[in-house]
Amino acid sequence: MKIVEVKSLSKNFTHHLAVKDLSFTIEEGRCVALLGPNGAGKTTTLEMLAGLQKPTKGTISFLNAKKGDYREQIGYLSQHPVFYPWMNAVEFLLFIGELSGLSKAAAMKRTDELLEIVGIADSKKRRIGGYSGGMKQRLGIAQAMIHEPKLLMLDEPVSALDPVGRREVLEMMKLLKKKMTILFSTHILHDAEEICDDVIMIHDGNLAVSGSLPELRRKYQEDVIKISAEENLEEWAQTIATWEVVSKVEYRDGSVEIFVKDVAAARSPLLAEIQAKQIPVTSFTVGHTTLEDLFMKVVGK
């Protein structure tokens, strides 16, 4: 079932178009990654979905309702979560919980639960002003889901965190996606690949690619053979590029990446060639293109 349907969404600021004619749908229960380089319009899109900005054009329908306030159904974490530094975590979650429409008792109960889930129960009586970045991010996620929203939107939830914090938030999201629909933006493709089901890639405010991860793999994934050697392979790489099975060759940082249509058909001739030319190979890897390669292709670099 569709939970959100966005139709030709546009947003003009005074001097530029942040989002141009963007349409996509989000299915209930999926974990969707909104990808794009910095300035692609990710935050603007999310803020429009959250009702924080008015679209210049286009419609957003939530659970098939075109109009109306659906804020009660969504949880949102902004890119730089802010809190009242003079509150402690319990006070803040109670405040947000009651604003979300929970009764005092229910807010209290959810606060205790969430503090355990996001792992800041030990510091719950400390002023938020003294929290570390990672703790603030956890508290941010807790405040976004206090009223058990149908759709949880997270804007760059892991970008500002150190590797440990990132790992923890990702693990938390893996647990959460079993319970609710998640839409999160990121430019760290590795994270997206790890936890999302669907991908929406935008570039310059336009929809570039969208689909489920397996679908994208089927459609865009190519096989790659990566070869490095002790000598310079640039010249040799050019001769390979003319082969029938090879679609593209790239020479990068002393190694050659050969994009092939069929690994099986390319592997033995390549190995034979290496043998014949006596190339001092140090590594020969067979793999696939990643989301990052697709992303780079989309962004046009």
Binding site: D69, R71, V82, F83, L99, S100, G101
Partner: peptide, 9 residues
């Protein structure tokens, strides 16, 4: 902070 509040109903 205003956004964090107004994103709530």
């Amino acid at each position: 902070m205003i956004k964090a509040i107004l994103v709530k109903p």
